[in-house]
Design a protein around this nucleic acid. Sequence first.
DNA 1: GTCTATATTCCGATAGAC
DNA 2: GTCTATCGGAATATAGAC
Lengths: 193, 193
Amino acid sequence: MASRSTQILEAAARVIARRGVRGLRVEELAAEAGVSTALIYYHFKDRTGVLRRTLEFISDRAERYTTDRHPDDPPLTPRDELARTLLLELQDTTEVRENSTAWGELRASAVFDEVLREDLARATLEWVQEVAALLGRVRPMAPASAHAAAAERLTALLEGLSMRWLSGATTIPHARELMHGAITAELDALGQS
Amino acid sequence: MASRSTQILEAAARVIARRGVRGLRVEELAAEAGVSTALIYYHFKDRTGVLRRTLEFISDRAERYTTDRHPDDPPLTPRDELARTLLLELQDTTEVRENSTAWGELRASAVFDEVLREDLARATLEWVQEVAALLGRVRPMAPASAHAAAAERLTALLEGLSMRWLSGATTIPHARELMHGAITAELDALGQS
DNA sequence: GTCTATATTCCGATAGAC
DNA sequence: GTCTATCGGAATATAGAC
C-alpha cells in the first residue's frame, strides 16, 4: 500500500531520471505525483528534504534489485555471477535507468559538494569490495591486491560506460559488449588458475 | 591575442570548474570575466550558447595540451605516446583539473540536455578515434575493430577514474596506476605483434 | 562593442480555507 | 492532509544610451 510519501518519492525518482537533481522542480514533481506543491512541503519540509529522502529511496531500491534473485533459479557459477552483477547496470529498464541516473548525478554533484563526498566514497568502496570478492572466487590463486585493482577498473569502467549510455554517446548493446570484453581481459590477466 | 569572446570562455571554464555547469550563473561569469552580463548575451545569445561554446573551447584546449610537445624532446615510441596521452589527463594541475571538471560536468549535463548531446558525442568519437589510431601504431597486426573497442574502454575508464578523483573517491597516483595497468592489459589482449 | 538599468520569467516557499 | 492562490527572491534576458 503506497502511502502518499511513497507516491511522491516514486514520482521524484522519475523526475530526477528525466531532469536530473538540479532540474527537479517542485511544481513538476507535484504534477508528476498528482498532488499540490503545498502537500510536498507539508510532507518534506523543503526541496532539499525531498532530495535527501529520494536518494535514500533510490539506493534502497537499487540494493534490492542488485541482490535479489528468484529462489528457484539455478545457482550461478562465480564467473556468471560476476558478469551478471556488472551487466545488470547496463539494461534499459526504468529501474536501472533511474538508479544509474541518480548515481551519476551524485557522482557529479560530489565534485562540488563536500557533504556528499564521504558517503559516496564509502558506497564506492563497498561496491568495489563486493566485485573484488567475486573476482576472488573466480580466480582464487591471484593475490588480493590484483583482485582489488581489477575491481576498481571494472567498476570505474562501468560508471564511465553508464554515463556514455545515458548521455547518448553509446548504446546499451555496445556498452554491454565492451563491458563483457573488459571482464574477459581482466580475468585473463588474473591468470587461468 | 585573447579576444573578448576568448576571455569570457576562459572565465567560463574557471567558473564551471568551481561551480559546475549547473552552478554557472551568468552574473558570476560576468564578474569572473570582468564584463557586464549584457556583453555575454551579446556574444553568446543565451546561457546555453555559452555552454556550447565552452564545450568546444575546452575540448580544443584539451586537444592542444594533449598533442603539443616541445620540438626538441626526444621522439616517443608509439607505446609511450599512448601512455602519455592517456595519463596526461590524470595530473593535478590547474589546466587538467579545469578541463576534467568541465568535461565531467558536460557529460553529466548532456544526460538531460538534448542540445549538448550531439556535440559531446562528436567530441567523444574524435577522442576515441585518436586513441584507436595510437593503438593501431603499437599493435598494427590487430584488427581495427579491436583497436576501436580497446580505445572505447580505455577512454571510458579514464572518464570514470577522473570522476572518482575529482569527487574524492581516489587519488591521482592510484588512478594513474590503475590506468597504467589497463593499458598493459589491453595491449596484451591485442597480441604481441 | 560595451555599459547601466530594468523587464521578464521562473521557482521555492507560505497563508489560509476546507 | 490537502487544496487554491499568491508572495518574494533570484536568475535569465533585453532596452537603450554611449
